Computed example of a mutant assay.
Amino acid sequence: MNSTHSALPRHLLTLDGLPETALSALLIRAQAFAEGHYDRRALDGIAVCTLFFEPSTRTRMSFQLAAQRLGADVLNFDASTSSTRKGETALDTLKNLEAMGVRGFVVRHHEDGAVAALAGHVNPGTVLVNAGDGRSAHPTQGLLDMLTLRQAKGADFSRLKVLIVGDVRHSRVARSDLQALRTLGAGEIRVCGPAALLPTDATLQGCVVSQDFDAALEGVDAVMMLRLQRERMDEGLVTSLDDYHRDYGLTAARLRRAAADAVVMHPGPINRGVEITDEVADGPQSLILTQVRNGVAARMAVLEALLRG
């Protein structure tokens, strides 16, 4: 892992700018973990805290499992039952935990840039992993998605046509996936969704952008569906859930437009009957639960690389 250590930044805040060599090394290491090859004492004596100021199921649980499998002491911070309800700032919370000897923090926050701001105030030797901040980034989700694609389609991404569908504007997952796909040299990246849910900044640079889902599906190797993030959007961006499903919901009939061996992905939680039907989510082309399983391996790779560096 020395090559990964040297190429990785001190904290993992984003996949933007991460060298291809470091990203690929993390994926190779994560694959080894997925196959059960790891040292259960790799992080022995190191305390890791999941510092979540936003609800989470998959990300929090998989980080806890990842740290435990590597032998770390794991602390689970829940903002709803902590002193943050009494007015304590996120930075004061982190500094107090740091004073107790915590070396690794896995942070989720509702504000863009919040994790990077915290990283600017930690002690030498403390490392932070961004577990999702606002709409900005979710780097370990990007890693586990790339690991899942790599397992299904091979290491050569230049042959792949990948389609990301839905609420890209509010999706930190989409941003991290797009950054990773570009870094790994994906042959064609397509993005589809209603105009109101597509970003107007440089997020979609280099992508083939469409509002016609049926046309965008033609011949793709992977379809990455996104959750409709109603909690992050202004009213009126979607006329109705029924209309959204009619225009952008992935059904078995629609999926037949993709390549015969196309795979379906979704970061969860799923809005069944909105962005995807039960038949597709639970069908033979779905890798949704594989993504969840790979989340543990990808996060093990990140924790090992940062905390043993």
Score class of each variant (00 low, 15 high):
Arg190Phe: 06
Asp112Ser: 09
Leu241Asp: 15
Asp177Glu: 15
Thr84Asn: 09
Arg10Gln: 13
Gly113His: 07
Asp261Leu: 05
Thr290Tyr: 12
Ala258Gly: 07
Thr183Met: 14
Val173Thr: 10
Gly36Ile: 04
Arg172Leu: 08
Ala116Phe: 15
Val48Thr: 03
Asn2Phe: 09
Gln64Asp: 06
Leu65Asp: 13
Leu217Pro: 00
Asn76Asp: 15
Leu13Asn: 05
Asp212Asn: 03
Ala297Gly: 08
Ala258Val: 09
Met146Ser: 09
Leu241His: 09
Asp278His: 11
Ala222Lys: 00
Leu306Pro: 02
Leu65Gln: 15
His138Lys: 01
Pro284Ser: 11
Leu307Arg: 00
Ser80Asn: 08
Ile46Cys: 02
Thr57Phe: 11
Asp201Val: 06
Ala216Glu: 02
Tyr244Lys: 03
Ile46Ala: 03
Ala22Trp: 01
Arg232Cys: 06
His266Asn: 10
Arg232Trp: 07
Ser240Met: 00
Arg159Ala: 13
Val296Met: 07
His266Ser: 09
Val274Thr: 00
Leu250Cys: 04
Ala298His: 03
Ser83Lys: 02
Gly166Glu: 00
Val122Thr: 08
Gly120Trp: 11
Gly134Arg: 04
Arg272Thr: 00
Thr290Ala: 14
Asp234Phe: 03
Gln291Val: 01
Leu181Ile: 15
Leu303Phe: 07
Leu15Ser: 01
Gly113Lys: 09
Lys161Cys: 10
Gln141Val: 05
Asn76Glu: 11
Leu27Gly: 07
Thr57Pro: 11
Arg135Ala: 11
Asp92Arg: 14
Leu75Asp: 13
Ala32Lys: 15
Glu218Gly: 04
Thr148Lys: 00
Arg190Cys: 02
Thr84His: 10
Arg41Cys: 11
Ala216Trp: 04
Pro199Asp: 02
Leu226Trp: 10
Val238Lys: 08
Phe33His: 14
Thr89Pro: 08
Thr203Trp: 07
Arg257Gln: 15
Ser136Ile: 01
Ile189Thr: 01
Met100Gly: 05
Leu118Asn: 05
Arg254Glu: 08
Phe77Cys: 08
Ala155Lys: 13
Val48Phe: 01
Arg172Cys: 08
Val208Pro: 04
Gly206Cys: 10
Val220His: 06
Pro269Met: 04
Ala258Lys: 07
Asp112Phe: 07
Leu118Ala: 08
Met146Gly: 04
Arg175Cys: 02
Asp261Lys: 10
Thr14Trp: 03
His11Gly: 06
Ala305Arg: 01
Lys95Ser: 12
Lys161Ala: 12
Leu144Ala: 01
Leu178Pro: 04
Ala297Arg: 06
Arg308Thr: 15
Thr126Met: 01
Gln31Arg: 15
Glu235Gly: 12
His266Asp: 10
Ser56His: 01
Met233His: 03
His37Pro: 03
Gly154Asp: 12
Leu51His: 09
Ala25Met: 12
Phe157Ile: 02
Leu228Asp: 00
His110Lys: 13
Val292Ile: 14
Val122Lys: 04
Arg85Ala: 12
Thr126Glu: 01
Ala253Phe: 12
Gly268Ala: 15
Leu237Lys: 14
Val48Tyr: 02
Leu306Asn: 05
Val296Thr: 13
Glu235Val: 02
Val280Ala: 10
Val208Phe: 14
Asp156Arg: 07
Gly166Asp: 01
Gly206Ser: 11
Phe105Cys: 08
